[in-house]
């Protein structure tokens, strides 16, 4: 694929990504405005901002977490990131799905191929999620009674198993890099003074640095 096409792809992705996020912001405001001002149910800005302040204190750090954005970009590209940010559940659903989708791809392939395959992964994930939620609205409680407690218990272990399995899939491509990454992760995990929300990004940074350093040394020897 030539350079022009590639630039074209990323230009289109950003155009549509920004447009859809922008429209969503207005939709979100619309529901509140309708209830407050058309139906006359306004609870007062004081009340809203008191509660909003409490929410901001609780999760506000994730709103400005640029490190996570960069991580998503590196792992799944801009299209999948726009979709993930709009649909939420990034770390437990979109990211695993996107990564699983491009795990089979050879690492020597271009970044645009990975980004496109990751987009399919997130798209499927959104489709499944929406289908489930619509089922929930339609069938509600009948559905849950069909799932036995044993099955529900099983669900708890799917995600951890997924992380282990995909780590294994990547490890088979480059065992050395996997070993260095494992060390990096354990070091970061047990260093006490790194705040929890930065640990994932810190682990990635350390792993990248260790692997790059090792690669250079290796080249110097040969």
């Amino acid at each position: 694929m030539n350079e022009a096409d590639q630039n074209d792809y990323y230009k289109n992705v950003h155009l549509w990504g920004q447009l859809t996020l922008f429209l969503s912001v207005f939709l979100f405001l619309g529901i509140g405005c309708y209830l407050s001002f058309i139906r006359g149910l306004h609870p007062g800005w004081n009340t809203i901002f008191t509660a909003f302040g409490a929410v901001a204190a609780m999760v506000g750090h994730t709103w400005i977490n640029i490190g996570d954005l960069v991580m998503y970009l590196l792992l799944m590209g801009p299209a999948a990131t726009y979709m993930s940010k709009l649909t939420g559940n990034v770390k437990n659903m979109r990211l695993p799905s996107a990564m699983a989708s491009c795990a089979a791809l050879d690492e020597s392939e271009g970044r645009i191929k990975r980004d496109i395959l990751a987009t399919y992964g997130v798209a499927v994930s959104v489709a499944v999620n929406t289908t489930f939620l619509i089922l929930l609205v339609a069938l509600g409680k009948i559905f849950l009674s069909l799932l036995s407690p044993d099955v529900l218990r099983l669900l708890d272990f799917i995600v951890p198993a997924l992380f282990g399995a995909i780590f294994g899939q990547f490890a088979m491509k480059n065992i050395r890099a996997a070993a260095f990454s494992a060390v990096a992760v354990l070091v970061i995990l047990y260093v006490p003074f790194i705040p929890g929300s930065f640990k994932a990004a810190a682990a990635i940074l350390l792993s990248v640095c260790m692997n790059l350093a090792f690669q250079k040394k290796n080249k110097g020897e040969t």
Binding site: E107, P160, I166, F170, A178, K199, S207, V208, L212
Partner: peptide, 28 residues
């Protein structure tokens, strides 16, 4: 290499984080 080590680290991190939660999780 950047992509590979970033992928390895993020999956490794999430895996290890889950494994710390309980014995069944680490077995998973």
């Amino acid at each position: 290499l950047l992509g590979l080590s970033a992928s390895l680290a993020s999956f490794g991190y999430f895996a290890a984080d889950y494994a710390r939660r309980s014995a069944p999780h680490s077995r998973a």
